[in-house]
Computed example of a mutant assay.
Amino acid sequence: MSDLDKALADIIAIRSQLAAGTAFRGYGPATMAATAAVALTTTLLQHILLADPTGQPLAFLLGWAAAAVISLSMIGIEMRARSRRHHSGLADVMIHQAVEQFLPAGIAGVLLAVLLWKFAPETLWMLPGLWQLLTSLGVFASVRSLPRTVALAGAWYFLAGFAVLLLASTNHVLSPWTMGLPFAIGQGLMAAILYFASGEADAEE
C-alpha cells in the first residue's frame, strides 16, 4: 500500500470514528409526523376500500408497501437535506451509518412478507405484528446515534408487535387497524421525541 493509499485509509477511518461519536440529526420531527399521517391514511383507505383484507392479501400488502415507499422517500429526502445542513463534511458518512443501522430490519421485513405470501399465505395474519417487532429492532439499533429517549419508541413497537400477534391469533385475520394504528402511534411518538430531545445532551456519547 502506498503512502497516499494509507493516508486516504486513515482519513476514512477518522471520519467514520467521528461520525460514530456524533449524534445524528438527519431525522426531522415534521417528517416523522407526516409518516404517522401516511399510516393513518392508509388504514382509513383500506378500512373503506377493502371489505375483506384477509381474502385480498395482495391488495393489503401492496397498500402498505406503497405507504412504506412514500414514508421512506420523505424520510430519505429530508435526511439528506438535514444532514448536509447539520453535519456538512460528515453528511455522507452519517447517512450511510443511519441506513446501515436500520437496513437489516427493513430487508428482513420485505423478505418475510414475500415468503409468507408465496409459501404460507395462511400465516399472513402474523405479518403486522412481525413487522412491528422488526421495526422495534431497527429503532433499538439506531439508539446509539439518536436521542436516548428514542428507545421509548422501540419499546412501543416491541410491545405493540406482541399485542397485535396475540390479538390476531384469536381470529387469524388481517386488519388495517392492527397494522396502521401501532405505526401511526409509533411514528407520532418518534416525532415528539425528536422534537423535545435536547440534541447532543440527550444522545449517546
Rank of each mutant, 00 (worst) to 15 (best):
T41P: 01
A20W: 01
I14G: 00
L62F: 11
W64V: 00
Q132D: 14
I75R: 02
Q132C: 12
A36E: 09
V69M: 01
P104V: 03
E204D: 11
A203S: 11
G161V: 02
V173D: 15
F183L: 15
G180A: 13
L130G: 06
A19L: 09
A197W: 00
L167W: 14
M1Y: 10
F60H: 10
D3P: 01
S88K: 14
Q56D: 12
E200R: 09
S198T: 14
A20E: 13
I185R: 00
S73L: 01
L116N: 08
L124G: 10
L146C: 11
L152E: 08
L62I: 13
A192Y: 09
P104H: 07
H96W: 00
M79S: 15
S198N: 11
A33M: 13
L49S: 05
A120F: 14
S88D: 15
L111G: 08
A201C: 01
P128K: 10
W156D: 06
L189G: 00
S145M: 15
L137A: 15
E205C: 08
I11L: 15
H87E: 09
A203V: 05
V110S: 06
G109F: 04
A19W: 07
A30P: 07
V164I: 05
L174Y: 07
P57A: 03
Q101R: 12
H172N: 11
H172F: 11
A105C: 12
G129A: 04
A30K: 03
M126C: 13
G21D: 08
L137Q: 08
A141T: 08
T31F: 04
F102W: 14
A66W: 01
G180W: 06
S73W: 00
G89K: 07
Y27T: 06
L181P: 07
V114A: 12
S83I: 02
W177V: 07
S71K: 04
L124F: 05
A23C: 12
D10C: 07
P128Y: 06
L90C: 03
I185W: 06
L159P: 04
V110Q: 02
W117I: 00
